[in-house]
Design a binder for these strands. Structure first.
Lengths: 202, 202
DNA sequence: TTGAATGTTCTCCTTTTGTTCTCTATTATT
DNA sequence: AATAATAGAGAACAAAAGGAGAACATTCAA
């Protein structure tokens, strides 16, 4: 069980290692988590070492090694640190405004549910076969929304939504090899709108 | 079985643990359920402990451990219903195969972190500009993995990884208009592997 | 070689937290 | 009416956690 300070320290080290490619000095950690004394940081590191979360090479500058395997089964919060922006060829750029992503906010709302996507109809919008989409349950949609629509009460489909004149609705697949189809509004029932998408590579 | 106050206390602790990844202090519980005295909370905790719903590590701050059954039948678990597959274009499969998608399995591990992607270099793999990728922090990679690599210790980049003969490493962008580049292995430092991807449409 | 930066080990201090009390009030039950 | 169960406030104390900083040892690069 880690104390909040230990957690902060560990997260800072992890972040530093990823951004800079080497471990930080005690002073850098202290600055990073808002503490003035190197001695305090050293105490935290010793405690983390005794909990097998990292190892320290004695007297070596920047001699902290994270023990990534032990890190694996620590207690979990639905919050992942958002380290920064990655752009090809640039250093990782830190993000000031938002430091973490709370998946609870992202997805876990009572009116949300998930669907697994089969098929390639939304491929060009980055929604691939096997992806999971998070749907907000609602019966209306705005132009441009990606919706789950029920056609004639039977066929469910994931398409981009567009309202046409004269009570028609256009459902647009995001795939060059498929065509958009217009329906009378009465035939279309909106089941929900895509508010998120996620994919696992494991 | 449980008194209303005990139930409130337990629920608060469950929620707190899931959201924050560690147990709350007595003061936090008191604030959370609208009580001013820590002593009262302590009494509730003792009672809950005697009912085997949790255990307390004496004198340890944040030393509350929930027992496993206390987690069950809780709707606040990081789980969203996975309703079924939606086959774009094809008729729907049953909405009744009610699985659940557990975000804990999906991405929530402490050795994970997130990066926001800038640029289109992985577009053809369905990773778009602005998406968030979940990275597992590790220093090795297998062929075909999408990795965060540090080139010469400075430039960060998101590419598909391939080992070549003679100590070379090929970093492959998933974008037809960009070219793969081979580097000497010494110049490349693997920072992590993409294990997930998510996008918000809100 | 030398000096600045860094790691290490201390002691001392403050704040926060857990723990144990006592006291009071309300409500339901016998 | 008496009793027990539940609920809450708050004081007092001990222990843990958080922090400052001095003093010394060690690295490492100029």
């Amino acid at each position: 069980m880690l104390t909040p300070s230990e957690t902060k320290t560990l997260k800072f080290i992890q972040k530093y290692c990823i951004e800079k490619g080497c471990s930080p000095t005690l002073t850098e950690i202290a600055d990073g988590i808002g503490i003035k004394s190197r001695g305090v940081i050293h105490r935290y590191l010793k405690s983390l070492e005794s909990k097998k979360l990292l190892s320290i090479v004695s007297n070596r500058k920047r001699g902290i090694c994270l023990n990534l395997e032990a890190y694996e089964n620590q207690s979990i919060a639905p919050i992942i640190p958002l380290l920064g922006r990655i752009a090809a060829g640039q250093p990782i750029e830190a993000i000031e405004d938002r430091h973490e992503i709370n998946l609870a906010d992202f997805i876990m709302n009572p009116d949300r549910f998930a669907l697994q996507v089969t098929g390639e109809s939304m491929m060009d919008a980055g929604i691939l076969d096997g992806d999971t989409v998070i749907i907000k349950h609602q019966n209306t949609a705005n132009n441009g929304d990606i919706v789950v629509a029920l056609i004639d009460g039977i066929e469910a489909t994931l398409k981009r939504f567009k309202k046409l004149p004269k009570g028609m609705i256009l459902l647009i697949p995001e795939n060059k090899s498929m065509e958009a189809i217009a329906y009378e509004a009465e035939r279309i029932q909106i089941q929900g709108v895509v508010v998120g998408q996620l994919r696992s590579y494991q």
